[in-house]
Amino acid sequence: MSQKKSKPKPAPAPAPARVESEPTIAAGSSSAWPFVLLGVVLFGCFLYVENTGGAFRADIYQTGMKTPPPVIGESIEVQLYKEGAKQYAACAGCHQPNGLGSPALNFPPLAGSEWVLREKPDRMIRIMLDAIEGPVSVKGTVYDNPAMVPFREVLNDFQVAAIATFVRGNAEWGNKAGVVLPEQVKAIREGTASRGGAKWRTESLDPVP
């Protein structure tokens, strides 16, 4: 760096004639109007973001949508019912796809059955887990068929609950009973584990609500 010239700083550079001086700044005071304008525009911006921004939620993708879109995932009832409709294939062999069973072959119906439509599903879950044998009265007809197999080791809690929900809530069969949740199945499965898998009979189910 040059040490030759030691002029005081405010003085203009000792420039050769052809070099213009650098731009300088005029004296001036600040003004407030940019901030006024900024405020006005900002107000409009807030309105715009309020109306189109989806409340800053990560799950709202569509501009202009103020409330979240319907949940993509289905409710537990619908999931259980749909799963049950699939799993019912395991039952349809005897109880038939229409749930009417086959009185001629000694298969009791599920549609309109008082065993199915009880307010509490406790008896139905027990029968599904460990099966039933001996004479059973369903819709005024007595069936006695030892062929039912226990599903305790075949179906898990969710699947049992799903089939029970499907059968109890199947409007096509005229059934309108409530949903069965996997938790209920789990409780009964654990509560009846000590019976060693013995099949139920009408008498042993009587105390069950």
Binding site: V49, T52, F56, A58, I60, T63
Partner: peptide, 9 residues
């Protein structure tokens, strides 16, 4: 295909 607040802001 982004959350709506990004294009809005």
């Amino acid at each position: 295909a982004v959350p709506a607040w990004i294009p809005a802001v």
